[in-house]
């Protein structure tokens, strides 16, 4: 991801609307990508990304230039997504909330059974993906964020540490713990499938 020119950022911080429009153009894909990993729905992710830029416009005056603008935008996006998901969970509007990870996997298994031969590989991939995503929903916010930012978005550890404002060691330990949980989940699921 290319960083915006510092002069442009300064203009945006000082309230220049055109400069802020260039900020939107430069970072909208990055921000929407992170939102998509959290929201798991393209439409909601776009909606969330727009809200992130609204918030950023409102708060950009407090940007202190002690990190990259992208780091700051990531932080805003991550915090807003976590808050939105928490709110949705509380209101029980989140459609997958009522379906546990195991139920979801069973549902996927039925889909696999119904699928035609040749689509088995794709169905299995979907099944595993669904299992991983459902498991991640039960992670604490920092653990989930570490997995999304490192293993899916591919952001380096130092940057993640700055985005989440947690020590580098904590980033690594949280990531290791989260990966182990996910791996064990897949070991169990794949073991069950082999037994069938």
């Amino acid at each position: 991801m290319e960083e915006l020119d510092l002069q442009e950022v300064k203009k945006a911080v000082s309230g220049d609307r055109q400069a802020f429009d260039r900020v939107i153009t430069a970072y909208k894909r990055t921000v929407a990508s992170v939102c998509l990993k959290y929201m798991r729905n393209n439409e909601e992710a776009c909606d969330m990304a727009q809200e992130v830029f609204c918030k950023a416009y409102e708060k950009i005056g407090s940007f202190k230039f002690d990190s990259k603008l992208s780091t700051w935008l990531y932080r805003v996006a991550v915090n807003m997504c976590i808050n939105r998901l928490d709110a949705l969970k509380r209101r029980k509007y989140y459609e997958t909330d009522s379906i546990s990870a195991d139920e979801s996997c069973d549902k996927a298994a039925v889909d696999v059974a119904d699928s035609r031969e040749g689509q088995d590989v794709l169905a299995e991939k979907n099944q595993l993906r669904e299992c991983v995503m459902e498991a991640m929903e039960n992670f604490e916010p920092a653990e989930r964020s570490v997995v999304i930012l490192r293993d899916i978005e591919g952001i380096d550890y130092d940057e993640i540490s700055r985005i989440l404002k947690i020590p580098l060691g904590s980033v690594k330990s949280k990531l290791s713990r989260a990966r182990e949980k996910l791996k064990q989940k897949l070991v169990r699921k794949m073991g069950e499938k082999n037994e069938l």
């Binding site: 429009d21 939107i24 153009t25 909208k28 894909r29 929407a32 990508s33 939102c35 998509l36 990993k37 393209n42 992710a45 776009c46 990304a49 727009q50 830029f53 609204c54 416009y57 991939k125 595993l128 993906r129 991983v132 995503m133 293993d151 899916i152 978005e153 591919g154 990966r179 996910l182 791996k183 064990q184 897949l186 070991v187 794949m190």
Partner: peptide, 26 residues
């Protein structure tokens, strides 16, 4: 399981489909 997890992470690296008028909506 580790290979499967790696594949899942790889699959999840999908790009969002942004509307053309994203900036305007903001």
């Amino acid at each position: 399981a580790a290979l499967a997890l790696k594949n899942v992470f790889s699959d999840m690296k999908e790009e969002p489909k942004l509307p053309a008028d994203f900036n305007l909506k903001v």
